[in-house]
Amino acid sequence: MAVNGEPGLLTFGRSGELLGALSIELDDEGGITGLRNQINPDKLRHLGEVGDLGALLRGNA
């Protein structure tokens, strides 16, 4: 999956709600030069229903 034009992945909660997005920046030889993780729900809403990562980590979700 592409995240912001880079290879990446989306993480989801138990009920299918989006929890985060990770993009992997690669150089011309395929080596990893950067990782970008986004867990801000306001910046993820355009991708679908967003879950409450804080509640999940506290065991409340």
Score class of each variant (00 low, 15 high):
58 R>F: 01
58 R>H: 02
37 N>T: 11
9 L>R: 04
30 G>Q: 02
46 H>L: 07
15 S>Y: 05
58 R>M: 06
7 P>H: 05
45 R>V: 14
30 G>E: 03
31 G>S: 12
17 E>R: 14
34 G>Y: 09
40 N>Q: 13
57 L>Y: 05
55 A>Y: 09
17 E>K: 15
52 D>S: 12
38 Q>T: 14
40 N>F: 04
26 L>Q: 14
43 K>I: 10
36 R>C: 00
9 L>Y: 03
45 R>A: 14
48 G>I: 03
56 L>E: 13
21 A>R: 05
22 L>M: 11
54 G>N: 13
52 D>N: 15
9 L>E: 01
14 R>W: 05
49 E>C: 00
1 M>T: 03
56 L>W: 10
13 G>I: 00
18 L>E: 07
6 E>F: 04
37 N>H: 05
26 L>H: 11
23 S>R: 13
41 P>N: 04
4 N>D: 15
46 H>D: 11
29 E>D: 15
21 A>Y: 02
30 G>W: 01
14 R>K: 13
13 G>T: 01
34 G>R: 13
11 T>Q: 13
44 L>M: 07
26 L>N: 08
3 V>I: 10
39 I>T: 15
49 E>N: 12
58 R>Y: 01
57 L>A: 08
10 L>N: 06
42 D>L: 13
47 L>T: 00
51 G>M: 08
21 A>G: 08
54 G>P: 03
11 T>S: 15
45 R>F: 04
47 L>H: 09
48 G>L: 02
49 E>A: 14
24 I>V: 12
2 A>L: 11
58 R>T: 03
60 N>P: 00
60 N>F: 07
59 G>M: 06
31 G>M: 05
53 L>E: 13
51 G>I: 08
44 L>T: 02
8 G>I: 03
30 G>V: 01
49 E>F: 06
31 G>I: 00
23 S>P: 06
50 V>T: 10
51 G>S: 10
15 S>C: 01
2 A>F: 04
58 R>D: 10
61 A>T: 13
58 R>V: 01
40 N>D: 15
50 V>D: 08
55 A>C: 14
22 L>F: 00
45 R>G: 03
40 N>G: 03
1 M>C: 02
42 D>A: 11
21 A>I: 00
15 S>M: 00
8 G>C: 04
50 V>R: 10
25 E>Y: 02
51 G>Q: 09
54 G>K: 11
33 T>D: 00
50 V>W: 08
